[in-house]
């Protein structure tokens, strides 16, 4: 029971029986909140590694607990009624209890108040999510059937590559491949070339598509947005310094035959390492250009 995510993950090796018992235990006790790690523990949202993912997690848990509290109250009353007012126990119906304007007003107003309590913090997070100003690195992400293209702007200007499902996963996922997915590292969540970004930097993605609607998602970043042909969607995230590593996600919008096979992998590096990576990429593409290779095709993007 673990996680979309890679590097500092030891739970995949944990014996399944223990994970099972733990998950079942926590689930029954309603302890879904006790997530310590950044990433998902197999039955709850990840806390994640960005301020947005943490805010989302907090909101999610807040609303979850409010729902649990309401459920305990309402289900408690129902269960009490089911036990207490049984015909078989000789309960006499009180046929005069058919209407009460007072309680009906009360149980209309209380939910409204609860909803307001939920809506205000949610609205604050929405405003923050949509504020893509002052980004330090922009990357154009283009969805294709069935791969992603990453085109860097700003400091990475000129870097442009495709990211497709890794070969090991691709062999194993064929019908009757005979390969046990459990033997493939990061089955279906690994790519040939991940997107590389620096930590501690506000990264803005400009999402679009060349064919059908795709959606780009990394749960640990709290970042999901559709890539729509002919239009550009924006989203931003800023990975906390110290949280460098590999983060994984998938396309979440049904995009045809291989929708389940176009993962998103992001390699978060320190700003220094990122700079090194950028220089290597630029050097490599210069060399390629010198050898007369065609530059990668640039996606046509219509503006909104």
């Amino acid at each position: 029971m673990s996680v979309i995510r890679g590097d500092h993950d030891d739970s995949t090796s944990r014996p399944r029986a223990i994970a099972w018992a733990r998950a079942l235990c926590l689930a029954t006790l309603g302890w879904a909140a006790q997530a310590e790690a950044n990433t998902s523990d197999g039955y709850n949202l990840p806390v994640g590694v960005t301020s947005l993912s943490r805010d989302i997690y907090t909101l999610h848990m807040e609303v979850f607990w409010i729902c649990v509290a309401i459920a305990v109250a309402v289900f408690g009353v129902m269960i009490y009624a089911l036990v207490k007012f049984r015909h078989s126990q000789g309960a006499i119906p009180d046929t005069t209890l058919v209407h009460s304007t007072k309680v009906e007003i009360i149980w209309t107003i209380i939910p409204v108040a609860i909803l307001v309590v939920m809506a205000i913090p949610a609205a604050k997070v929405i405003l923050m999510m949509e504020d893509t100003r002052n980004s330090e690195l922009s990357i154009r992400v283009t969805g294709y059937q069935w791969k992603w293209e990453y085109q860097y702007m700003d400091a990475g200007e000129g870097i442009d590559f495709f990211s497709t499902l890794s070969r090991d996963s691709n062999y194993a996922r064929q019908l009757h491949s005979g390969i046990d997915p459990n033997t493939v590292p990061n089955y279906l969540l690994d790519v040939d070339k991940p997107m590389v970004i620096p930590s501690g930097t506000k990264v803005r993605l400009l999402l679009t598509s060349q064919d059908v609607i795709h959606a780009w998602w990394v749960p640990d970043f709290g970042a999901k947005r559709s890539a729509v042909p002919g239009f550009v969607n924006e989203l931003w995230f800023k990975v906390d310094p110290g949280k460098e590593g590999i983060y994984r996600g998938q396309c979440t919008s049904l995009c045809g035959r291989d929708h389940g096979f176009m993962p998103v992998v992001v390699d978060v590096r320190t700003p220094d390492d990122f700079k090194k990576w950028v220089d290597e990429q630029k050097a490599a593409s210069k060399q390629a250009a010198a050898q007369g290779e065609q530059p990668p095709p640039t996606a046509l993007v219509l503006s909104k």
């Binding site: 029971m1 979309i4 998902s40 709850n44 996922r173 969540l189 998938q250 396309c251 389940g260």
Partner: peptide, 23 residues
């Protein structure tokens, strides 16, 4: 399926990463 979704399994996929096996 609540757990699967929260743990990150997209819908409408015929095959999934191994951590989603149990649920």
């Amino acid at each position: 399926q609540h757990f699967l979704g929260l743990a990150g399994m997209p819908r409408r996929i015929p095959d999934y990463a191994v951590q989603f096996t149990d649920w």
